[in-house]
Write a protein that binds this DNA or RNA. Structure first.
Lengths: 241, 241
DNA sequence: CTGTTTCATATGTATAGACCTAAGCAGAAT
DNA sequence: ATTCTGCTTAGGTCTATACATATGAAACAG
């Protein structure tokens, strides 16, 4: 995780929790406190740094959150023997992703269909037999070139208003965000061979490796939607930390 | 992000920042505070909830961190119109990943070679012409089945001790973690067609879609290592939030 | 009408003090 | 030796208070 973005308030005289974080980081990087070592308690550090315990506490709490420290009551705080490598990916809406690249965003609805949910979908979303689902296929383009193919299923039991919504102009993702405020999500990434229709939509060869994301969304324990996103050739999901 | 893991301290009488978080979450989910709305100030909320401002502050700070709120001084706090979808992936060592599945971990070093860094690598790591690099190829297996093929390059200028290290028993990843404490990382995920040697190592067909991670690591602005990890057929990287 | 200054205000953070709680440890009881 | 019991300790959190800082908005100047 990058350093905090607030500018260095080094003019100030009081010690900030940021200063404490930075100093602890430094001591870990320089191996002054080696992996697995027990670090001094909050009270001692507060005294060393000339600040309140709460300040040290916040610094250490955040460093723990970032994977550098391990804390346990009574046992004290230790430098993680093996720093937790964690990456955070922002999952923007396609529109935002494309316009952020400075490209023109274009959306097209390829097909809509209300059908009985297939078995694998019923299984995935926990629907009863015979449940109906809305099946959408869309294409998102950047500067006229296919960027992402969206294959979406919406649970009509949970979201009946989806059946009458118009997805010709607004993508289902954007419609859903305004229809369902906040939700539990399971997302996975995988490499898949392009199926015939994915290949046709993206303008690639069937069987080509395709970076794919699958996302299932629940709201208050009810499955709302399942989507499979297939990205154009050469797509990379990148982050720094 | 999942709810905090600490057990509900509902026996307590004082209001916890967790309670405040949960209640604010509820109000957002139930649309009591709709997207884009300005929410009451910390002082008002503290009064409402019957707790100190610091408690409300922590609750709102964390919700902001989690992408549900937007805060600006003087302007106040708003519900994010479009909640920031962010996923955090833990990048465990392969060993941990495999043993966590309950499978037996096995590591094999396929080849080691000290060579002049190829152009693409020099470019990637910012090395000068003629710089030497250590090139390793390894296979990580789960219950005897290939799981991940590792194609790693180590900058010998930055880490000369790598040349004499023994990677026959310990994987380069684990060696590096103990050699370089904490580092800046760029990681990307992509779908690639298996090259001949990747396919041979993983026991798949050349050209098969392969989930691939590429990671470059710096320490104090010096490039340390670049690695390309190719995962076995069917691999998925999954998370919930 | 536009650029500048001032002011009020919401958030951001530091502090001292208090109490809670998990958990390591030691000594007692079995 | 093993289990139980309490003491002690380090972190976890809340409170009340104070000051810092960014910034929207209003007052003001050109």
């Amino acid at each position: 995780m990058p350093a905090d973005q607030t500018p260095d308030p080094s003019g100030g005289d009081k010690i900030s929790f940021r200063d404490v974080k930075a100093e602890i980081r430094r001591r870990i990087e320089r191996r002054i406190w080696g992996p697995g070592d027990l670090v001094p308690g909050e009270i001692d550090l507060a005294e060393d740094f000339g600040c309140a315990r709460a300040t040290v506490n916040r610094a250490m709490r955040e460093l723990t959150e970032e994977g550098l420290l391990e804390r346990k009551r009574k046992a004290g705080t230790r430098v993680r023997a093996m720093p937790l490598r964690q990456a955070r990916f922002e999952i923007p809406l396609v529109r935002a992703e494309i316009t952020a690249m400075g490209a023109a965003y274009h959306y097209a609805l390829l097909s809509t269909q209300t059908v009985p949910a297939p078995d694998w979908l019923r299984d995935r979303l926990g629907l009863r037999a015979g449940a109906r689902a809305l099946h959408l296929r869309c294409l998102h383009s950047a500067d006229g070139r296919p960027y992402q193919f969206e294959d979406r299923w919406i649970n009509l039991q949970a979201l009946p208003q989806a059946e009458t919504a118009d997805f010709a102009l607004q993508g289902p993702n954007e419609w859903l965000v305004q229809a369902v405020p906040y939700s539990e999500v399971e997302i996975s990434f995988l490499a898949a061979a392009a199926t015939v229709d994915v290949a046709a939509a993206l303008g690639i060869e069937p069987g080509e490796p395709t970076f794919t994301a699958e996302r299932t969304t629940w709201w208050q324990s009810r499955a709302i939607t399942h989507v499979r996103l297939s990205f154009a050739r050469g797509y990379r999901m990148t982050t720094r930390y």
